[in-house]
Write a protein that binds this DNA or RNA. Structure first.
Lengths: 330, 330
DNA sequence: CTGAAAGCGCTAACAT
DNA sequence: ATGTTAGCGCTTTCAG
C-alpha cells in the first residue's frame, strides 16, 4: 500500500506537504498540489482511514442497529440513511440484533470500538441497561421505537393516531364489535397502537370488550391463531390489525377459515404493500410514511455530523388510512 | 476514552502487559489477567479498533456493495451475510450503488480506505474498469451477478435453467406462442434468462418469434408497457417473466387490461413473494434460493477471513418452479 | 512471565 | 509555502 511518505519521496517534498496537498490545504501552492495529485493517481494511493481515525479520534462510520432488516420497511430506511451518510462522506454499518438484547449490546460495543461517529438505533423490545448507558457515548437517534430511559431523539410513526383513525373509520361505518389484534404492549409501538384503538372506542362512547382484544408475538402463525381465537370467541364484525406480520397472519387465517371480506368481516391492515391493492376486494390499510421518516432522520443525522447546533425536535410521522374494499358497513 | 495505558497505571503493570492480558495471551499469569479485566470492566474500557487496524493493517469490516438493497432479496442476503460476519467478529458495511458505476467505485474506494477485510459485490450493470481493478486488491466475492472481467468467485442463481424450466413447462402444457419479457441483456442475469428461454424453445424445436420477446429496463412501468406491447402485437398464449419487477409490472398491466389468467394467458412469474399465493388463481413462479445462496456466500466469506486455504468453487444455485394456478393448457 | 521500545500512517502544532 | 516533530492507541519484537 502506498503511503504519503512514498508520495513525498516521489514528488520530492515532505510527507506533511503531501498530506496538506491531498486535503486541499489553502497554504499549498497549486504547482505542488498538481504534482502530488498526479503521483497519488499514478500510484493508486488510497488514504488509510484507520490512521486518520486514530488521529482525529472518530471514524467515518455511522452505526445502524435494527432488530431485523427484512421487516418494517427497514431496508427502505437503510437505503435512505446510507444515502444521507454518503452525502456526508460517511458509511453506514448495518447490524441486526434479532431483537436480542445481548446481540444489540455486542453490536453497539463494536461500533463504539470503531469510534463510530453516530448511531441510529431501532431498540430491541427490552434493551439492556448497559446498552442505554453506552448509547450515550455517541450521538444517537432512535428510529421507529422508543426505548424508555434512553434520552436520545426519536423519529417515530404516530402509531396511536394511525390505529385510532382505522378504528374510528370502522366505527363510523356502523360497526360496534371492532376487534384489535396487535403486537405486544411491551414494545413502545405495540402500546401506542393499542392505546389508539382504545382511544377511538372511548371517543365513540363504546366500552371495551376484552374478548375483542389480543396482543401476541409478531409472527405470522401467532397472529393467525390470535385472529381465529378472537373471531370465534367474540364474533367481531370488524377488525384492526396492529402490525405488518399480524396482517400477514390474519390474511392467512381468513384464507384458511374461508371468510368473505368484507361480508363476514371488515378488515384494516397495517403497513402498505403492493399486494394489498390486489388482495380480494383490496385491503384497507394504515400506510406508514417510512421514506419520509428515514429522510428526516437522515437529515438530522448529517446535521449532527456537521456538528449541528440547532436542535430540531424529532417528529412524529402520521400514517395515512388507505381506504379500499375490505371495509364496509356491517 | 480509557486506553490500555490508563488501565496499566491503574493495575500497576506495563501497557503491553495489559494488551496481552486483554487478548488472552498465554504468557500472562492468571492473576494479572483477572486484575486487568476487572479494571477494564470497571472503567468501561473499549479497545480502539482504529489503532488496532493501523497496526495489523486490516480492519474488522466487510464490504457489501449492491445496486439496491430493497430489490432482489438483498435485504435477506444482507441479513445472512451480516450474521456470518458477526460469527467471525466482523461487521458488514452495506452500500447501495444504485447501479451507477461511479457510486460503485466510490464505495469501493471507501472500503479500501477502511482496509476492509473482504468484499461481497453484486456488480452494477457496467462496472468501471477501475472498479474491477481495485476489487482485486481485497478478497472479493461476486453475488447474483457476474462482472465479465472480474476474476473473483461468483455465487449465482442458475437463471438460465430457471427460465428454461418455466418455458418448458408452458410448452409441455401445449403452448406454442410463449412470450418472454425480461431485463436487459447487458446484465449477466438478463442474458442468462433470455438464453434459458431460447434454449427451451430450441429443445422443443420451436423457432423464436422476435415479436414475442422484449427486454426492458427492470422497472414496473417499463415492464407494464412491454407486457402490453407484446401481448397486443404478438398475441401470445403464455408468457414468462424475467425478473421480480418485471413480474410486478406485468401483474399491473394484466389488471389494467382486465385479462383473465390463465384463460386469456398463462403466466410464470419470477421470484417468490407471499402475495403470489393469493394473487388470482395463484401465480406459478420461479423461486430463487436466496437464503441458501447467501448462506453459501457467507460460509465462503468466513473461510476467506480465516485465511482459508481450500478453494471450494463457487456454486450455481438452482431455482425451483412453483406450480400454481396461473399456468394451464391453452 | 513481564517491561521497554519501536512503529503502523496520518494530522497538526510549531518552526522556518 | 513548506519542513520538522510529536504523537494518536495499539501490537509486537526483543530483552530481561
Amino acid at each position: 500500500m502506498t503511503t504519503i511518505k512514498d508520495l513525498a519521496r516521489l514528488v520530492g517534498v515532505s510527507h506533511s506537504t503531501v498530506a496538506r496537498a491531498l486535503n486541499d490545504h489553502p497554504a499549498i501552492s497549486a504547482a505542488v498540489k498538481v504534482r502530488v495529485r498526479a503521483a497519488a493517481l499514478e500510484r493508486g494511493y488510497i488514504a488509510d482511514a484507520a490512521a486518520r481515525a486514530l488521529r482525529v479520534r472518530s471514524s467515518a462510520l455511522v452505526g445502524f442497529i435494527v432488530p431485523d432488516i427484512e421487516e418494517n420497511d427497514m431496508a427502505t430506511m437503510a437505503k435512505v440513511l446510507a444515502e444521507s451518510c454518503n452525502a456526508a462522506s460517511r458509511q453506514l454499518v448495518v447490524s441486526c440484533s434479532g431483537d436480542e438484547p445481548e446481540r444489540e449490546l455486542a453490536h453497539l460495543r463494536a461500533l463504539l470500538s470503531a469510534r463510530a461517529a453516530a448511531l441510529v438505533l431501532m431498540p430491541s423490545a427490552t434493551p439492556l441497561p448497559e446498552t442505554l448507558q453506552l448509547a450515550e457515548r455517541l450521538p444517537t437517534l432512535q428510529l421507529v421505537r422508543h426505548a424508555g430511559r434512553l434520552g436520545a431523539e426519536a423519529f417515530m410513526f404516530d402509531d396511536e393516531s394511525g390505529i385510532r383513525e382505522a378504528t374510528a373509520h370502522l366505527l363510523a361505518l356502523g360497526h360496534r364489535r371492532v376487534a384489535y389484534v396487535g403486537g405486544s404492549e411491551g414494545i413502545s409501538t405495540g402500546a401506542a397502537r393499542l392505546s389508539g384503538y382504545r382511544r377511538a372506542l372511548r371517543d365513540a362512547g363504546i366500552e371495551e370488550d376484552p374478548a375483542l382484544v389480543s396482543t401476541v408475538a409478531p409472527h405470522g402463525p401467532a397472529a393467525s391463531g390470535a385472529f381465529r381465537r378472537v373471531f370465534e370467541a367474540a364474533r367481531p364484525s370488524a377488525m384492526v390489525l396492529g402490525g405488518p406480520r399480524i396482517t400477514l397472519g390474519a390474511v392467512e387465517a381468513i384464507r384458511e377459515v374461508g371468510l368473505d371480506v368484507p361480508r363476514d368481516i371488515s378488515l384494516v391492515g397495517f403497513g402498505d404493500r403492493a399486494w394489498m391493492r390486489w388482495w380480494g376486494p383490496g385491503l384497507t390499510t394504515v400506510a406508514l410514511p417510512a421514506r419520509e421518516l428515514a429522510l428526516a432522520c437522515g437529515d438530522r443525522l448529517v446535521a449532527l455530523l456537521r456538528g449541528g447546533t440547532v436542535e430540531p425536535p424529532a417528529g412524529l410521522f402520521a400514517p395515512t388510512l388507505l381506504l379500499r374494499g375490505s371495509t364496509a358497513p356491517p
